[in-house]
């Protein structure tokens, strides 16, 4: 479903720095599977998620990203979103003055229009919002606030998953969705994510900790270091990393 081949990317030189971050990422996530990416701070995990989502701040210098057989490397972020790519941000952005539901309804309908589908009606959207909010323990009051404004770190992560439920993407990238969540919130969020699992949907779960993975039960765990995937294995790899840390991969950073 998602095929990343020999992906090299650097900070867009227009941003001032000329810094290579991704140095040959190879990763394939078939439909229906959940893959985890673990790795030390600064190894390029968030950069990978941004590059997949089409962030202009990074430039792909080599390699390819194929999504459902299509090369999406040159597509705009919104075109990738319309194809079903959803990124749960490590640091969700606050957008003052734009109410969450207004924003999401507009996003949902923009995606639908881009796909040639009928727009969702206001009542249907509201009904869906109420159902999904209930699943994640999100209050009415939270939904009325501007996007991410005034939320704690954990609440923001919860809202990201709420957005995922509302937009029902084909592929989810979760970038450290577990950080900032206490044990109870983690369970609620993990249940929300698990509810999205189905044979047509893929997920890439970026995390430092195995506790989220205990809930999500990934099919494959990858270790990222120095801008590449350096090892892949089953769920047991996450436990091993938790116990041993990333020291043995330190050499890969060169």
């Amino acid at each position: 479903m998602l095929e990343i081949k020999n992906l090299h990317a650097r900070v867009n030189p227009e941003e001032g720095a000329d810094l290579a971050i991704l140095k040959g990422v190879d990763l394939t996530v078939p439909a229906g599977e959940v893959h985890a990416v673990m790795g030390p701070n600064g190894c390029g995990k968030s950069t990978l998620s941004y590059v997949l989502a089409g962030h202009e701040g990074y430039e792909t210098t080599d390699g390819a990203i194929r999504f459902e057989g299509e090369d999406i490397g040159e597509l705009e972020p919104e075109e990738r979103a319309a194809r079903g790519l959803f990124l749960s941000f490590q640091y969700p952005v606050e957008i003052p003055g734009v109410p969450t539901l207004t924003f999401l309804k507009e996003a949902a309908n923009a995606q639908r229009r881009a796909r040639g589908e009928a727009e969702i009606s206001a009542p249907d959207f509201m009904k869906l919002a109420r159902e999904n909010a209930a699943k994640l323990g999100i209050s009415n009051d939270m939904l009325k606030r501007p996007v991410n404004v005034g939320f704690s770190g954990g609440e923001k992560k919860r809202m990201e998953i709420f957005q995922a439920l509302m937009l029902a993407p084909r592929f989810l990238i979760l970038d450290e969705t577990d950080s900032g969540l206490d044990i109870d919130a983690l369970k609620v969020v993990a249940e929300g994510v698990n509810a999205l699992r189905n044979p047509e949907r893929g997920m890439l779960v970026i995390t430092h900790y195995q506790r989220l993975l205990d809930h999500l039960k990934p099919d494959v765990v990858h270790v990222m270091a120095g801008g590449r995937i350096v090892e892949s294995g089953g769920p047991e790899l996450a436990h091993k990393l938790e116990a041993e840390g990333y020291d043995k991969y330190a050499g890969e950073a060169a």
């Binding site: 202009e56 701040g57 952005v93 606050e94 734009v98 924003f103 507009e106 923009a110 937009l167």
Partner: peptide
């Protein structure tokens, strides 16, 4: 306009022009 906010909105499916318009609107309201 906040570039991070624009990217966030586009990641959710709004095109660049619409994302800019929404941010500008919220600024001016």
């Amino acid at each position: 306009l906040d570039a991070a906010a624009l990217f966030y909105m586009r990641q959710r499916g709004l095109d660049d022009a619409r994302a800019r318009a929404l941010l500008t609107e919220s600024f001016l309201m």
